[in-house]
């Protein structure tokens, strides 16, 4: 199956990465500013960050909080979204509240939540949970709403109870849409994590970034940007390949992760 075209399609994003880095290199050389290191200088700073034990622990702790917040959000949001999609009264009960919460920047709740729950893992994880929940609820809702009524009728005729219909018909039928929501949520988890750490300035990847900025270690700043950017791309690629395997039966989707928190 490895035709010339599919190899080209796989290589294209790699080439794009290299092109963007080359562009950066040229721009930095042209500007020749202390605060704008070249791509090579920034990349040279990466090993020293990843080699620094404290920084590494910080980053791994960030990632752990992110994973916990993401999984908790998914476990909470998918059932709620599916329920909203299949029951009009649940939907009209929840929708206005969600609409009000939607434009609230979740990472901005960080100072308030820290006031209540302290600066520990709990507040940071909670913020990530909030950030991920909305898109997953929304997509599960849309997916469940679009499930064909006749499929459920056939299910009922086969003697499935309403709970069984939910698990055995609605869930798989809305899986493509749910996974689209999860993909958005995953990138959002990363963004919320970085943003909340930038705001809280306590620990984690976002904090390393801003500490370096404060201390004028510009190559570290840009190296951290590369690391966080690479995490985003790696998570997206990994999730996308899993998604394609799970729902290869469905129509291809054009949706992409939206980055907001």
């Amino acid at each position: 199956m490895l035709t010339g075209k599919s190899v080209a399609a796989r290589l294209a994003p790699v080439l794009a990465c290299m092109g963007l880095l080359a562009l950066w290199q040229i721009a930095a050389l042209a500007l020749n500013s202390d605060s704008f290191p070249t791509a090579l200088e920034a990349m040279r700073a990466i090993p020293s960050i990843l080699g620094d034990k404290e920084a590494l622990i910080n980053i791994l702790a960030s990632l752990r909080r992110m994973a916990v917040g993401f999984l908790a959000a998914v476990a909470f949001s998918i059932p709620l979204g599916l329920l909203m999609g299949r029951s009009a009264s649940v939907a009209s009960f929840c929708n206005p509240l969600l609409m009000v919460i939607y434009p609230v920047p979740k990472a901005a709740l960080m100072p308030i939540i820290m006031l209540w729950l302290g600066v520990g893992d709990l507040s940071k994880t909670l913020v990530i949970f909030l950030g991920v929940s909305l898109p997953v609820i929304y997509h599960s809702f849309e997916g469940a709403k679009a499930v064909e009524e006749k499929m459920l009728w056939s299910g009922a005729a086969m003697g499935l109870s309403s709970v069984e219909r939910m698990i055995r018909i609605v869930l798989p039928a809305s899986l493509p849409e749910i996974l689209t929501g999860c993909r958005t949520g995953l990138v959002l988890a990363l963004i919320t994590m970085v943003t909340s750490e930038m705001i809280a300035r306590q620990s984690g990847a976002g904090n390393i970034l801003f500490n370096a900025l404060d201390m004028g270690q510009y190559d570290t700043v840009f190296a951290m940007i590369i690391i966080i950017g690479a995490m985003g791309i790696a998570l997206d690629v990994a999730f996308e390949s899993m998604r394609q395997r799970l729902v290869s039966w469905s129509e291809p989707q054009f949706d992409v992760p939206l980055s907001f928190s």
């Binding site: 963004i191 970034l209 951290m224 950017g229 995490m231 980055s259």
Partner: peptide, 8 residues
């Protein structure tokens, strides 16, 4: 698209 823009 999947790059966390806020990191920039």
């Amino acid at each position: 698209a999947p790059l966390p823009k806020v990191a920039l």
